[in-house]
Amino acid sequence: MASKPAGIEDMISKKLVAVSRTTSVRNAVALAKGSNVDMLPVLDGEVLVGIARLEKLEGAGEGTVEKAMDKPVFVERDSTIENASVEIINSGLGRIPVVDSRSSMKCIGIVAATDLLAARIGKK
């Protein structure tokens, strides 16, 4: 019997640093820098509606996050380590939101590239 591919469930950080569409760009930049992250999930309530990359926010000037956000990049809570790793590599981000698509894209946390790498080499 084949074993089930390793999943990301135990690697999801529940400490979610996020913003809303109406957060000012200035506040979003300060939050990202203060939290030492390169991306902030953009939420409408608990639902992931986009991502705000620090680099793009820094060049956005005044206004709200909505004008600088990108389409959401994410993995689902039952993703394998391999699938999550591919999504992070393709996104160019150091971490990526995790959603529960059974709950209308509810953002349940973040998984970091370092956690996925540690799992791949047996350190987690």
Rank of each mutant, 00 (worst) to 15 (best):
G61F: 05
S104F: 12
G61H: 04
S3N: 13
S103R: 14
A113S: 14
N90P: 01
E55M: 11
S103I: 02
I51A: 03
R21Q: 14
G50I: 05
S91G: 05
V73E: 07
I96G: 07
K14H: 11
V98M: 03
V37G: 09
N27P: 10
V17W: 09
E58L: 12
S20V: 14
T22D: 15
R53Q: 11
K67H: 06
D10G: 11
I51T: 09
E55Q: 10
D100A: 04
K33W: 11
I12M: 02
I108P: 00
F74H: 03
G92E: 11
L57S: 07
D10S: 15
D100W: 02
S85C: 03
N90K: 15
R77K: 09
E62F: 08
P5N: 02
E76C: 06
V99K: 00
V75D: 00
V49A: 00
G109R: 01
S79P: 00
V49P: 06
K67Y: 02
E66M: 08
I88S: 10
I96R: 02
T114F: 13
S103G: 01
D10P: 14
S24F: 12
E9M: 12
G50L: 03
A60I: 06
V73S: 04
S24Y: 10
T23Y: 03
K106W: 00
S103V: 05
A30W: 11
F74C: 03
S85N: 08
L48Q: 01
V42I: 06
V17A: 12
E87I: 05
I96K: 02
R21I: 08
D70A: 04
K56W: 05
R53S: 05
N83E: 14
E58K: 14
R77E: 00
M39V: 15
P72V: 00
I8K: 00
P97G: 10
V49Q: 01
P41T: 06
A113T: 07
E46R: 07
A68W: 06
K33P: 13
S20A: 15
S104M: 08
A32Q: 07
S35Y: 11
E55G: 07
L48F: 05
C107Q: 00
V99T: 04
G109L: 03
K14Q: 11
P5E: 04
V73C: 02
A84I: 03
K71T: 06
I12E: 00
I108S: 02
G94T: 12
L16A: 09
K106R: 13
V49W: 02
I8H: 01
G63E: 05
S20M: 10
S85E: 07
I51Q: 04
P97I: 09
E76S: 06
G34P: 12
L40V: 10
I51G: 09
S101V: 10
E55L: 14
V49E: 02
S85I: 01
K33N: 15
R102S: 10
L48M: 05
D70R: 07
A28H: 13
D78A: 04
L16E: 05
V42A: 03
R95M: 12
M11S: 15
A112D: 11
E9L: 13
I108R: 00
